[in-house]
Write a protein that binds this DNA or RNA. Structure first.
Length: 898
RNA sequence: GGGCGCUUAGCUCAGUGGUAGAGCGGCGGUUUUACACACCGUUGGUCGGCGGUUCGAAUCCGUCAGCGCCCA
């Protein structure tokens, strides 16, 4: 016997362990089955399962389980990425709590600690994914720092370098002074900051008393100014272009240059140019050949080495000793000091409050500092071209398609990709520096030494580059590095390119773009055929979930409370195209009711001795009820299949829900009860067979979304051994012959029951009162139907009997119109004639409104002559039906008049 | 400032040229032995505003407004 309620916690761990142990998740490279491949976008090894993972993994698992059931050789590739900055931060924090420091222990010792941490606490997310039911092929789990993937990284770096697509350059980068590393443009987060706009006065050289005013939000960088720029057409400054200003505090004369970067409308119309500390200024500096001294060090403290030689005293303007005193000060302390000194010198014109966007590091959280450094760059512009073409030509397709625009916009304007990071945890760059500055990029130190020997004619000592690669560099190789590349493995041959990449739109630039570039370049083919972009999970009010807002939901807690099936089904039901998912506890609770409904339906079947049918042939079913539910199941199968093919998880969930609850439970089971309670025989056998058959279809249909409850019921009902539903074939939609007749019959029964129930309810007839249904004007076929369904009608419509009206209608009837029939309910004892008249009048009003609308339409000559013939014909039929109904309601009203 | 998206019932959302829908909620009723996480019935909408195309517009076009996101 099934328990009274479904207990997910008792079932989930057992079934998951069974699936995993039996190899149900395993890809089968040796099979002939066509592959279906999803490469998991590798979660961060430091991460734990959050609600966003729950969404993306539910979608991926639903697709994987569905395709696996369809007979595809499914590979859902698991793994994690090493998350350079995040992991290094975690381990450093851990060490700090033990009073240890990374720099003190040195690189090797630190890395040993990281690996130790990884072994102990890394990848807890992979355990949590099991709670969700994710059917990943665990024995294939990879890690971006493992040996094989590291080999792929090495191969790619060296190859790209030899192809000139990776190079070293000295440019401005986004520098995180807290983490002391370069970071990518994509790791920059603009934050609105309430600051000030200071207007400074720079004296004009040789013209005492004349100044040019510049506005700035970062006065401390003025030590590194090398020009003042004005707009070439700005008449206010025309005579100053080509002359020089004296840089306050420093004393260095700097040119006043004409550059369209300066906006006459903004600030004073003149801007100070600090090429080494601002991206726009850097461009101006390049255009005008300006020096580019850095005045801040790696920790964003004032550093004077590059301007020391420029310092000179100028009475009332520049004080070298003051500047020297700034050395080593933090940028914000230096700002205060600089402003105070400028004010003292009368060179601070004004201070205005100013709100502006300040770039912050998304990991470290501190304001970033553009910094001029040597870094390794990847020529993304070149690599992007084939990736763009692949999407243009449809070799990779985005779903929904609109995201292709986002992809194109980013890819067509892509900047050189800075791939080096000043970290220890990551793939160390395979470059060796010779004392003279030559660099050798090779797979091994031996090869580098050999290359150096060839160049210098003698052995020279080489020093390996200290930097590591951006984590995304290795992630970009994931679709093929996990399959064994650069080795030519059977897996690589079979599973590349993948079928679909599933991810959120915020990740298009990170994973999609980079995997596309690397896949095209090294495999000569796209890494995936489709990219399914889903929304973000938000709270019920549509707010982004965040720890600071306190509105985060823990998927594991939701699973504990409602079960994984409920959470997964909720996510499917809410995942429409191009929409964020507004998720609340209540939504999960609501959908749990559906899991419970299935469980209860199963209990009913069990009580009636219904199980996996033996030798039931749907094609030979004769009873209308059996044929009707078989037809309904087939249509549900078709709808669910089409929805999944289109990535319409909401439609998939809705179609399954409507069929299971609205058809199978509400009508099939109810209509079947009289038969099931009746005598044994062919009819009962057929209804039981159909019930068992359709329930099996339901379990298969819902398995991708709610794997646990379906798998549990599958074996409990003898459809297969425990844990076998996951390997069972997805149902086919097999049309039922002459389904229209079965539908027409059941539609009639449903309409009759519905109308009678509504009339009784509106008349406030207590359920205990049962009455005969007298049919007036019934066609012989209708009387036959009534006879066939008499038991069900008795039960569902609270009727004693159904028979033709014999003679005059009794007094005090309630009447409803169903097709050509007027059904009379003799309710003399309880009926309120006034209420019944009002009810009939209302029904007549509805029919009349409908008829009026339709006849107006048909009265329009343009409509009749220009609309499609079927539409006109259908309108005529609807009008006739509406008028007939009006006539019957008129007759009904006349019967109870007076 | 540029781009994208959204606006349909109280709420969350389907519906992309031909009868405005679902779930949840609300209201009324029900221990009808699978299920009160249920059953039965019912109430909710000038489909954001305006204009256009069309025999016909929630749907196509234009425009305005509001909201959200991305980029600068």
């Amino acid at each position: 016997m099934l328990d009274k309620t479904f207990d997910p916690a008792a079932v989930e761990p057992r079934l998951y362990a069974l699936w995993e142990a039996s190899g149900a998740f395993a890809a089968r490279p040796d099979s002939d089955a066509p592959p279906f491949v999803i490469m998991i976008p590798p979660p961060n090894v430091t991460g734990s399962l959050h609600i966003g993972h729950a969404l993306t993994m539910t979608v991926q698992d639903t697709l994987t389980r569905w395709r696996r059931m369809q007979g595809r050789d499914a590979l859902w590739q698991p793994g994690t990425d090493h998350a350079g900055i995040a992991t290094q931060m975690v381990v450093e924090r851990l060490l700090a709590s033990q009073g240890q420091d990374r720099r003190a222990m040195g690189r090797e010792a630190f890395l040993a600690h990281v690996w130790e941490w990884k072994a102990q606490s890394g990848g807890s997310i992979t355990r949590q994914l099991r709670r969700l039911g994710a059917s990943l092929d665990w024995p294939r789990e990879r890690f971006t720092m493992d040996e094989g993937l590291s080999k792929a990284v090495l191969e790619v770096f060296v190859t790209l370098h030899k192809q000139g697509l990776i190079y070293r350059d000295r440019r401005l980068v986004n520098w995180d002074p807290k983490l002391q590393t370069a970071i990518s443009d994509l790791e920059v987060e603009s934050r609105e900051v309430k600051g000030s706009l200071w207007t400074l006065r720079y004296p004009i050289e040789g013209e005492p008393g004349r100044f040019i005013q510049v506005a700035t939000t970062r006065p401390e960088t003025m030590l590194g100014d090398t020009a003042v720029a004005v707009h070439p057409e700005d008449p206010r400054f025309r005579d100053l272009v080509g002359r020089r200003a004296v840089l306050p505090l420093v004393g260095r004369p700097i040119p006043i240059v004409a550059d369209t970067y300066s906006d006459p409308e903004k600030g004073t119309g003149a801007v100070k140019i600090t090429p080494a500390h601002d991206f726009n200024d850097f461009e101006v500096g390049k255009r005008h050949g300006l020096p580019m001294p850095s005045v801040l060090d790696a920790e964003a403290r004032v550093a004077l080495a590059e301007i020391e030689a420029d310092l000179r005293a100028v009475e009332g303007i520049a004080e070298p000793d003051f500047v020297r005193g700034l050395a080593g000060q933090d940028r914000f302390a230096a700002r205060k000091a600089v402003l105070a000194k400028l004010e003292e010198l009368g060179l601070l014109e004004k201070t205005e409050p100013h709100t502006h966007q300040v770039p912050h590091g998304d990991r470290g959280g501190v304001p970033l500092e553009p910094r001029l450094t040597w870094q390794w760059y990847c020529d993304a512009k070149t690599l992007a071209q084939p990736a763009i073409e692949a999407v243009e030509s449809g070799r990779t397709e985005f779903v929904p398609k609109q995201w292709e625009n986002t992809f194109f916009a980013w890819m067509r304007d892509i900047q050189p990709w800075c791939v080096s990071r000043q970290l220890w945890w990551g793939h160390r760059i395979p470059a060796w520096h010779a004392p003279d500055g030559s660099i050798f990029v090779e797979r091994t130190e031996e090869e580098a030494l050999a290359a150096a020997r060839a160049m210098f004619g003698a052995d020279v000592p080489l020093r390996r580059d200290e930097d590591v690669l951006d984590t995304w560099f290795s992630s970009a190789l994931w679709p093929f590095s996990t399959l064994g590349w650069p080795e030519k493995t059977p897996e690589l041959a079979k599973y590349y390119p993948g079928s679909v990449l599933v991810t959120g739109f915020d990740i298009i630039f990170f994973w999609v773009a980079r995997m596309m570039m690397m896949g095209q370049h090294f495999m000569g083919e796209v890494p995936f055929r489709q990219v399914y972009i889903h929304g973000l999970v938000r709270d019920e009010k549509g707010q982004k979930m965040s720890k600071t807002k306190g509105n985060v939901m823990d998927p594991l807690e939701l699973i504990d409370a409602y079960g994984a099936d409920a959470l997964r089904f909720t996510i499917c039901a809410l995942t429409g195209p191009g929409r964020d998912v507004k998720l609340g506890r209540k939504r999960v609770e609501d959908h749990r009711a559906f899991v419970t409904k299935i469980w209860n339906a199963a209990r009913f079947l069990e009580m009636n001795g219904i199980a996996a049918p033996q030798g039931f042939d749907p094609a030979s079913a004769t009873s209308p009820l059996a044929r009707w539910i078989l037809d309904g199941a087939n249509r549900a199968v078709a709808a669910c299949t089409a929805a999944l093919e289109a990535y319409r998880f909401d439609e998939y969930a809705a179609a399954a829900y409507a069929f299971v609850w609205g058809s199978f439970c509400d009508w099939f089971i109810e209509l079947g009860k009289p038969v099931l309670n009746g005598p044994d025989g062919a009819e009962k056998d057929e209804v039981k067979g159909a019930a068992g058959h359709v329930f099996g279809t339901i379990l298969r249909l819902l398995h991708p979304a709610m794997p646990f409850v379906t798998e549990e019921l599958w074996h409990r009902f003898g459809y297969g051994p425990e844990g076998s539903l996951i390997r069972t074939a997805w149902p086919d939609s097999v049309p039922v012959p002459d389904a229209e007749a079965a539908r027409a019959e059941l539609d009639w029964v449903v309409a009759l029951v519905g109308e009678v129930r509504a009339a009784r309810s509106e008349m406030n007839v207590p359920p205990s009162v049962t009455v005969p249904l007298l049919l007036q004007g019934a066609a012989p076929a209708t009387l036959d139907r009534a006879g066939r369904w008499i038991d069900a009608i008795r039960r569902l419509a609270r009727a004693t009997e159904v028979r033709p009206l014999d003679g005059a209608p009794p007094r005090g009837v309630a009447q409803v119109v169903v097709g050509e029939v007027t059904v009379m309910l003799p309710l003399a004892e309880v009926i309120d004639l006034g209420a019944e008249r009002a009810r009939l009048a209302k029904a007549r009003g509805t029919a009349e409104g409908e008829a009026r609308k339709l006849s107006a339409k048909l009265g329009n000559a343009d409509f009749v002559s220009r609309a499609a013939e079927e539409v006109v014909e259908e309108t005529r039929e609807r009008l006739a039906a509406a008028e007939a109904e009006m006539a019957r309601l008129d007759a009904a009203l006349a019967r109870i008049a007076g």
